[in-house]
Computed example of a mutant assay.
Amino acid sequence: MRNALTLNGNTALLTRANPLAKFSGVLLITVVLALSIDWVSASVALGFELLLFPLAGLTLGLLWQRGWPLILAAAVGGWSTAILAADRGRILLDVGVWSISEGSLQLGVGFLLRGLAIALPAVLLMSCTDPTDLADALAQQAKLPHRFVLGTLAAMRLVGLMAEEWQTIGMARRARGVGSHGNPGQRLRAMLGQSFGLLVQAVRRASRLAVTMEARGFGGAQRTWARKATFSRLDAWVVLGGLLIAGTAMASAIGAGTWNMVFLAQQ
């Protein structure tokens, strides 16, 4: 995580902000984007989000490396919406099985942009937030139960290990000639077997971690903190920035006449 938390050798600005403040800012943006399916509000929010990524120490390369599953999911969702939505307006493409009209294309583009605008803040939040800082904030300021906080911390710490474990299992299986050849069905069965192996390793690792944490007194009634979680002026600006992005996106869509409530669009 060091590359994402530092920028040119210095701590990135958003890295120093309180995790709860960053979560609040992301939540404000997400709520507004979840209300409408138009492309204007999503485009405005997405433009602001891309400007914030350098403040989190992220480059486009790191953005793609960390968020490519979400980016591809948004692209597939936008395309599916464009070809499956009811035709409205002039037909732009008709191949018999499916067609794309002006209305369905606008809906698909809105879904694509909205998916990206919702996913990228999550990537930003996870990339510029230290798991220990998040756990401290959840326990000290959000007053969440210790077991929930420790479980969240352990899960975030194990995400990177699971990725490495997946590669290790894959290389071990390929060394035995499993999963490196065959038809698509055989490759799919090999991938499912590798997924089951990763699940077994995850359960074993979680069990060992739980026993270790219990033996060291985690989750006890009385706790002390090595670092005090506090709110600063920077945190206020982070929350205000999230509110500003959300408000600007909504106002832009309403002003352009494209604001389209989700529950109304589905009727």
Rank of each mutant, 00 (worst) to 15 (best):
A45D: 12
V95G: 08
A226M: 11
F263M: 09
A82Q: 08
G67H: 01
G103D: 13
I245D: 02
L93C: 03
M126T: 09
W259K: 10
V32N: 10
G110W: 07
S24A: 15
R208Y: 03
R66E: 02
T30R: 02
R173M: 00
E214Q: 08
R16T: 12
G25Q: 09
P19N: 10
V97S: 15
Q266M: 13
V211G: 01
L14P: 09
F148T: 14
M213C: 01
S195A: 14
V123S: 05
P184C: 11
G257N: 08
A74L: 12
S43E: 09
L134H: 08
N260D: 14
Q266A: 13
Q186N: 04
V40E: 01
F48K: 09
L264N: 11
N260Y: 04
P69L: 04
T59M: 06
T258P: 00
L62Y: 02
G78R: 06
S99P: 02
N18G: 12
T168L: 14
L158A: 15
P54F: 06
I254D: 00
L28H: 04
T15L: 02
L234T: 06
G61F: 07
K143Y: 15
A249Q: 04
E165L: 07
T168F: 06
L134A: 13
S99Q: 15
G219I: 04
W79T: 10
L120M: 14
S180Y: 00
D87T: 14
L62S: 07
G241W: 02
S99C: 06
A236C: 05
L52R: 01
V178K: 00
G110E: 07
L72T: 06
G170D: 02
N183R: 13
V44N: 02
S43F: 11
F23C: 03
S252P: 04
A265D: 11
T258S: 15
A12M: 05
Q194P: 00
